[in-house]
Design a protein around this nucleic acid. Structure first.
Lengths: 261, 261
DNA sequence: ACTTATCTGTGTATGCTGTACACAGAAACA
DNA sequence: TGTTTCTGTGTACAGCATACACAGATAAGT
C-alpha cells in the first residue's frame, strides 16, 4: 500500500475521532463541520447519493464549492462523517428482564429501520472505510444484548457478524423499495420493475422450480412483496424479514443452549 | 415514476434478456457485445469499479470512447451486463444423495467465493437494477437444493432470502480484504487499517464490552481476522463465516423438522 | 497600536467523466 | 447504380473533484 494511501486513511479516521483544536489565528469559520454534514445528509436523503456533490453541499450551506474543502479535505472524508452521523445511535435496550432474544430482535429491527430510512447508506461500499463512534456504538449495543448469554468473546463477535450480516444482506429489497419511494416512485411501479425480470423465468426451461413457484397459485407478485406469497397467508416483505430473523435466532439459541451444557 | 425512467429500465432489461437480431444493412460491428463486457470486467477485476470508465473500456477494446455507445446505450446498461456475466453460473450440485443441508452449504460457499473473487460486484447497489439470466440461475440453484425439503413455495423463497442475506451481508469484511488484495495491499496493512478504528474503543467508557473483548487475552487483532480470536482456538475470517452459516442452517433445519410434524 | 502570521472564503483553472450530435465511410438491398 | 442503414470517429458540452493563488479578516506578539 502506498504510504500516500495509508496517510489518507489515517487522516480520514482522525477526522472522525479526534477533536481538532480550534484555530488560534485567523477568522472564525462561518459554520461548523456538523452544519456541513447536516446539509450533505439532507441532500442525500432527498435526492440520493448521486446528488451528493461538493457544489450541491456548498450551495446548501451557503458558500462556494471550494469552501467545503476548508471543512473536509475530500469528498470521501465528508461522506465518512455523513455515514457515521446518519447511522445515529443504536436504540436503547428494552429492559433488564427481556432476555437476549428479545433484545437482539429489537436491535435487528432498529438496524433494518435505520437502513430503510436512509437507503443511500447501503450504496456505500465498505472499502476499509474508517468507522466512527456511532458505528462502534451499534456494535457495542449488540454485544450488550448478547453478553448475558455468557458466550466467550469470539462467539459473541461471531453472533454479531451473523445478525449484522443477515439484517444488512436480507434488507436489500426493502432498501431498494425505500430508495425508490424516496425518489417519488410508487410501490406498484417499483414492484413492476423488479418483478418484470423475475417473470422472464416463467416457462423458461432453465428455471423449472422458479417457474413453478411463480405460476403456482401460491406464487405471484404482489405490491407489498415481489416474492411469492400464499393467497391464504400472504407474507409481506417485512414479515419475510421477521420470519428469517426468527430462524436465525433459533440457530443462535440452539448454540447457546448447547454451549451451556 | 417518470415514463422516461421506466422506459430506460425496460431498455436495460431487454438488453439482458432479448437477443437483438443482427442488423441487415450497414457494416458489421468490429467486435461483439460480449467482447466489450469482457474488456470491462477485466478492468474492474484489475483496478476496481472506479477504473471502469467508458474511455477505459473503449481503449481496452481498441476503439474510440463513443463507439462503446454503439454496443450499450449507457454505462448503466454496460454494467448490468458486466454484473450478470461476472456472476457466472452457480456451482453444479454435489449429488443426489447429499441432502439439502450439504447442498445449501455448498451453494453458500460458492456464492461467497464468487463475491470475493469479484469484490467490485458488492460495490454496486441494488437499485431495482435489471436482473439477468445468471442472477436467476443462482436463485434457481438454491431453490433446487431446498426443494427436497417439501417446504411450501413461500417458505422456500424466504429460505433463499435468509441464506442469500447471510452470505452477502456477512461477507463484507472478506470482500473488503479481497478488494484491498486486488489493489496490491497486503493483508497485514489492510488489517491494520481496519483494526485501527476498532482500537478507538479500548478504554473508551462508551464501549465497555467491546473494550473488554479487545483487551481480554482471548481478544486481539490478527492478520487473518480483525475480530478477536481465542489463543487456543483462533477463528479465522473464513471459519467465522462457516460458524455463522452452521447456526443459520441449524435455524432452518429446526423449522423444516417442525414443519414436517 | 502596529506588525505579522495565519486562517477563511473566493475565483480561476485543470483534467476527467458521461454522453449528445453530426459526419464519413462501408455494407447490403433496390 | 443508387439508396438506405449501420458503424466508428471527431467534436462539443455540462458537470464533477480538486489544485492553486489571492484578498480580506483575525488575533498573537511586539
Amino acid at each position: 500500500m502506498a504510504a500516500d494511501t495509508r496517510e489518507k486513511l489515517r487522516e480520514r479516521s482522525a477526522l472522525l475521532w479526534d477533536e481538532q483544536p480550534r484555530a488560534a489565528r485567523g477568522p472564525k469559520p462561518a459554520v461548523t463541520r456538523e452544519d456541513v454534514v447536516r446539509a450533505a445528509i439532507t441532500i442525500a436523503d432527498a435526492d440520493g447519493l448521486a446528488a451528493l456533490t461538493m457544489p450541491a453541499v456548498a450551495e446548501k450551506v451557503g458558500f462556494t464549492t471550494m469552501a467545503t474543502y476548508r471543512y473536509f479535505p475530500s469528498k470521501e472524508a465528508l461522506i465518512d462523517a455523513c455515514v457515521d452521523t446518519a447511522m445515529g445511535s443504536p436504540p436503547p435496550r428494552l429492559g433488564p428482564h427481556e432476555g437476549w432474544r428479545a433484545e437482539v430482535r429489537h436491535w435487528a429491527y432498529a438496524k433494518r429501520a435505520m437502513l430503510c430510512a436512509r437507503p443511500w447508506l447501503a450504496e456505500l461500499p465498505f472499502v476499509a472505510a474508517p468507522h466512527g463512534p456511532n458505528w462502534l456504538s451499534w456494535h457495542e449495543a449488540f454485544l450488550w444484548t448478547i453478553a448475558e448469554t455468557g458466550l466467550p468473546p469470539e462467539d459473541m463477535m461471531d453472533m454479531l457478524s451473523i445478525v449484522h450480516g443477515y439484517v444488512s444482506g436480507s434488507s436489500d429489497t426493502a432498501i431498494s423499495l425505500a430508495r425508490a419511494t424516496a425518489r417519488g416512485i410508487s410501490t406498484e411501479e417499483w414492484a413492476e420493475a423488479v418483478g418484470a425480470d423475475l417473470c422472464h423465468a416463467i416457462n423458461d426451461p432453465r428455471y423449472p422450480i422458479l417457474s413453478a413457484i411463480l405460476t403456482s397459485k401460491s406464487g405471484g407478485i404482489t405490491a407489498a412483496s415481489p416474492l411469492p406469497t400464499r393467497a391464504g397467508r400472504p407474507r409481506t416483505m417485512d414479515e419475510s424479514f421477521d420470519f428469517g430473523l426468527e430462524r436465525v435466532l433459533d440457530g443462535i439459541e440452539l448454540y447457546i443452549n448447547n454451549a451451556r451444557l
